[in-house]
Design a protein around this nucleic acid. Sequence first.
DNA 1: ACACCGTTGTCAACGGTGTTGTCATTTCTT
DNA 2: AAGAAATGACAACACCGTTGACAACGGTGT
Lengths: 242, 242
Amino acid sequence: MAKKTVASTESTAARSGRRERRDVRREAAVDAAFFLAEREGVAGLSMRRLGQELDVDAAGLYRLFRDKDELLLAMAERTIAMILDEMGEVTEGEPWQDTLRRIAEGTWQVQTRHPAITVLTFARTTGGPAEQRMVELILSAFARSGLAPDQAVLHYRTYVDTALGLCAHSAALNSLDPDVREKDDTIWTRIYARLPEAAHPVTRSHIDELTRVTQKAIYDTAVEAILAATERAGAEHRNASS
Amino acid sequence: MAKKTVASTESTAARSGRRERRDVRREAAVDAAFFLAEREGVAGLSMRRLGQELDVDAAGLYRLFRDKDELLLAMAERTIAMILDEMGEVTEGEPWQDTLRRIAEGTWQVQTRHPAITVLTFARTTGGPAEQRMVELILSAFARSGLAPDQAVLHYRTYVDTALGLCAHSAALNSLDPDVREKDDTIWTRIYARLPEAAHPVTRSHIDELTRVTQKAIYDTAVEAILAATERAGAEHRNASS
DNA sequence: ACACCGTTGTCAACGGTGTTGTCATTTCTT
DNA sequence: AAGAAATGACAACACCGTTGACAACGGTGT
């Protein structure tokens, strides 16, 4: 079934051939968009610059994507695919906690590599195949925890939204304009380290620890807190039904 | 010394008078900005429209704020003041968990009233007086939990960043353009409810619960999970030091 | 009262953004 | 070879944040 000749299937084959090529160009555009966003930050990812990067007029991109939002969703979908790629397979009999830990770790790694895309898409739903796989993966981990469906879903969403929210928080910090970032960073040493002890005693006595805590430690603590809450809810559920 | 003229008290009085009037105009501008952001959404809050709202040329706003970022920080500062206002005083002997629950609740209420500002400022630090008060308030609650300083700070930041991340997540959902919001919302019924059961059994069997869970329930679950984690860490600390 | 000077308001402009429409050119199918 | 579909190039629209120049106003010092 190569490409040409044969009567009836010709039009569909031709059309699918074009579709394929269109998809290839879409993928190339998403590639360039990732490169651009990583290099120039969230404000540098514009349709004109993306066209410039691809040596194509910006208007031509609207033949590939209905609007910029569709491009962003394509980038979000690929981000999820990267996380799936990063974490590898779920081995038979792996504790559900470890599955969720590995997903959380992969999400964090990808977020660190692509903060701009994280900021732009962390509250969106793509509905694409990678997202579908991810939903099934995480949700079945929570189902394995032994919770009733409504509690499983509640903790699933708590896990996902918390992870996304914290990743977006960190990504937003990491993708501020350098001067603004500097300004925000130094507030702890410029302002909070010099507060009068009388009015702000606790802040002053914790100032060293405040400047030392890392975003990753915060993320890990939050993930573990939610896993522990899920375990507790599962234990209560089993006690109640026995 | 003052500036040029010799009469010392006069110039400072005049200057403080001008400063006061300038601050009044700043406050009025922030008022209008809140009104505008609430009415027109995150994309509708522009300097030109804000000028239009105040019957002033947009360029005049740059006499009040160095740039748009400074306006946003002023709005963030006022947002924190609203939360402090909403939660009232900390009564003597109130359990630290309840203090943190009331702060979390106030934050959520203000976020739902002003989603646009939440999205625009959730990862920023103002360094202003309201923020200073809020830091001291939350941090002293965690100090009351009996944790060592480094653990207290770690859980303080986990609490704050998780709450901000989840509020920003919800706010971002609530301030999408209506058509995009509709598109994202219906993905669960358009896509996920129709997935083939063979490849996505768990998603299909939890579809009803997935469409029913609310952002507020997720938020409350996350906050309680972190409070529980803090309690556990405190208990371990007390056991270790006894 | 007058001149002065800092503050305020107005206007135009620059370079940037997402997006649309038009028209010519290329590419592929029949 | 002819016709249709896809692609590319260019200009344009309506916005955006921000800056500079310039006119009008108001209180101050002489």
